[in-house]
Design a protein around this nucleic acid. Structure first.
Lengths: 114, 114
DNA sequence: AAAAATACATAGACTGTCGATACATAGACA
DNA sequence: TGTCTATGTATCGACAGTCTATGTATTTTT
């Protein structure tokens, strides 16, 4: 198994949490921030990120603002109020799941709650 | 997002760890044990489990033994030595990933190492 | 001038899990 | 006797999410 198989189901939550932390980010910035924070352990590809962002937009979780930098455009994403709610919900669920998995792997131990 | 999306990439590791703990298990037993241990939070379906077990078998991670109970057959699975190695490897990787995700979600915190 | 980084995007393939379904035995209960 | 539930293995088709590969264009670095 490779890390790429593990990211499934967590990418959305990761993106939402980054947006929550930073206020607003653009796509390329997200890939770099994830790379930086994880010391290159998690690399988010464009082919994963942009479809995910577009879906978040379509679902009303984020809103966008296009900004021209020189002649190149950046599309900033930030959470809607619905997105804020979802962030909390999904994060809670993710942490609960991680805890449950830990239970299965280490019968007598629990991961610390964040 | 639902829990079912999160299980992706972790099912294999969960199965391997259960086999490591129990020595040998049969399919139905695995579904019930996961259900029991997680208070019903994680339900492994037949459509997920058996393909996974068959793949583990094909990959040489587990070996099987068929046992007749009454007139009904049970297929017990247990780890091969290769499977033991993989269990450790995958578990290490999974825990590392969980830790990395936690880093992304809680910038200043780390999950306890099990 | 060439290369690398920045910045967006999509198409197609892959793969893992799920829902539904199937078959059969066993035990409980009406 | 008939039916319901639990036990037990198994497969098929659908679906969704991620990846690889590719594309376009600008900006910065060498």
């Amino acid at each position: 198994m490779q890390t790429k198989d593990l990211i499934k189901g967590t990418l959305n939550t990761i993106i939402l949490n980054l947006l929550k932390e930073h206020g607003q980010m653009y796509g390329y910035e997200i890939t770099q921030e994830v790379k930086r924070k994880t010391d290159g352990k998690i690399l988010i590809r464009e082919g994963s990120l942009y479809p995910a962002l577009h879906k978040l937009l379509a679902d009303g979780m984020v809103m966008t603002e296009e900004v021209l930098v020189g002649r190149r455009s950046r599309i900033y994403y930030k959470l809607t109020s619905k997105g804020h709610e979802q962030t909390i919900e999904q994060t809670t669920e993710l942490l609960g799941f991680l805890d449950t998995v830990a239970l299965l792997i280490y019968p007598d131990k629990k991961l610390a709650n964040g």
